[in-house]
């Protein structure tokens, strides 16, 4: 599950799941929800690979990939499938559509960034610049 939390100028995404992989899937679905201006559009999928030195940075890079695809391809993600994590690398297939979207998100930031496993729950939070 995810929720969008208030922040004076930006927006914060908070995620709770039962696996590290599902944090990435949930972030993709949340991002699609945020930028989509409606249903429909041409179905599209993208295979993505993310590399970063730590878990938190991998989440930032994952969101940066979504922002890049939104900006350059009008890509609205609906889901992330076959999410696979090995070492510092995340591999997944993004499924979604090319559709009108709100050019809202500038970047994912490291401010207040969290991504941790506590008591069988994976929790992450990340502030997006909008």
């Amino acid at each position: 599950m995810h929720e969008w939390r208030s922040h004076t100028a930006e927006i914060e995404l908070a995620i709770e799941t039962d696996s590290e992989e599902r944090v990435f899937a949930e972030a993709a679905a949340a991002f699609g929800e945020l930028v989509a201006l409606g249903d429909g559009g041409e179905p599209v999928q993208h295979d993505v690979t993310i590399d970063a030195a730590d878990r938190e940075a991998r989440l930032v890079q994952w969101l940066e990939e979504l922002i890049f695809l939104a900006d350059t391809e009008s890509f609205v993600p609906d889901s992330a499938q076959n999410v696979f994590i090995e070492g510092n690398t995340v591999i997944a297939t993004l499924k979604g559509r090319r559709a009108p979207l709100e050019p809202l998100v500038k970047a994912a930031t490291y401010h207040g960034l969290r991504f941790a496993h506590d008591n069988d729950v994976w929790r992450a939070q990340v502030v997006l610049d909008v």
Binding site: E10, T109, V127
Partner: peptide
């Protein structure tokens, strides 16, 4: 001034 990320705005 208001809260930003890192630097305040």
């Amino acid at each position: 001034i208001h809260q930003g990320y890192g630097f305040p705005v």
